[in-house]
Amino acid sequence: MRKPRTAFAFTVLFFVLLYLPVAVVVLFSFNSQKSLTVYEGFSLRWYEAFFADEALIESLGMSLRVSLVAMVGSLVLGVALALGLVRARGKLGLYAGFIMLVPLITPEIVTGVASLLLFKGLGIPLSTMTVMIAEITFSISYVTVILRSRVAALNREVEEAAIDLGATRWQALLLVTLPALLPSILASGVLIFALVFDDFVLAFFTTGVTPQPLSVRIYSAIRFGIQPTINAVGTLMLLGSIALIGLALLIPRFFGRRGGLSILSGE
């Protein structure tokens, strides 16, 4: 069956428009000259300039810390919320599930402004801590959505059998339920790390003067003109995000090959 040529042409055009600007950024990050319009030759000078810039390295460190804390915090709260929503009885779980989805459909700029007003209203100065709190709050819904279907698919009889054999409910949760959720938890964690690391809007509204997340630092720098160093930073962030998302996709497949029993037995 022949594929429609028009549909194929539009598909190619879509991917060209989507990835051509990214390809240009990557290409000019290896430019030997400072020009952003003429490619003179291959060079790593802008990557060397990035690693020699203390301000950018400081921002990179902050972004990594914020992403790590947001990942851990959102996983702890998201797992608990997913378990509660699936196992809640009556209309409480339905209403709570609806409220949980609201952050996903709310424009991020609205969330950013609301977070800023909240911190200002409570008299909390903007700092690394406020960025972490805002990112954790925003990321919980993503973790919950990913884990909720997995929790619903679990066989409660296995957990009940562990309780019948003498385990407490906490022991059954730690030794049976959480190991079964481990692939989804790890995949969610990697995805949240990538999302928070690349986030700009929420970080922009909740960060202090210094240090600033890497995305905010880049925005501040390009307001005074685009420097080739920014191309190098963007390329590194792109590669890191691709690697993390790829890892998030591979983790469930890796555990799927090993099988659920091997996870529980530790083999």
Rank of each mutant, 00 (worst) to 15 (best):
R223L: 12
Q171Y: 07
F255I: 10
R45D: 02
E159R: 06
S149H: 11
R2E: 14
R2W: 14
R2K: 15
P228L: 00
I242D: 07
E159K: 09
P183H: 03
A180D: 05
N231L: 01
V69S: 10
G84Q: 09
S262T: 04
V38L: 13
L44S: 05
R253Y: 01
I57D: 06
E108G: 07
D198H: 11
V26W: 07
S43W: 06
E58P: 00
S241Y: 14
I146E: 04
T128G: 08
M62I: 05
M1L: 15
E157N: 14
V24P: 07
R223E: 14
N31R: 12
W170A: 10
L18H: 08
F42Y: 08
A232W: 04
A114N: 04
A152L: 09
L147F: 03
Y95A: 10
T168M: 05
G189H: 02
A221P: 00
L175T: 04
M132N: 06
M100N: 14
V69R: 10
G260V: 08
R253L: 02
G240T: 00
G246I: 11
V22S: 10
F200Q: 10
V113W: 09
S67K: 08
E40C: 01
L126S: 08
I57V: 15
M71I: 05
G225L: 06
E40A: 12
I222N: 04
Y47E: 01
F197D: 13
A96R: 02
A152R: 08
V233Q: 02
G256M: 08
P103R: 08
E159C: 07
G41L: 13
L191R: 03
L18M: 13
A161G: 07
K120L: 15
G73L: 11
I99N: 09
V72Q: 05
I263T: 15
A167M: 04
A9V: 09
M71G: 06
V102C: 07
V25N: 09
A172H: 01
Y142A: 08
A80T: 11
P252L: 04
A49C: 01
N231I: 03
I146K: 10
S220C: 00
F205M: 11
S29I: 05
I185K: 03
L13Y: 07
V176Q: 06
R169L: 07
V151E: 00
R156I: 12
F197M: 14
R257E: 05
R5C: 07
L182P: 06
L20E: 14
F119D: 00
F30P: 09
V72P: 03
L236D: 12
L60G: 09
L250F: 12
D198C: 12
A161D: 04
P179R: 08
F200R: 10
L186H: 05
A9S: 12
F28N: 02
M129A: 15
I226Q: 07
E58I: 01
L244F: 08
G166W: 10
K91A: 08
A70D: 01
T144S: 03
L182H: 02
Y19H: 13
A9E: 06
V145H: 04
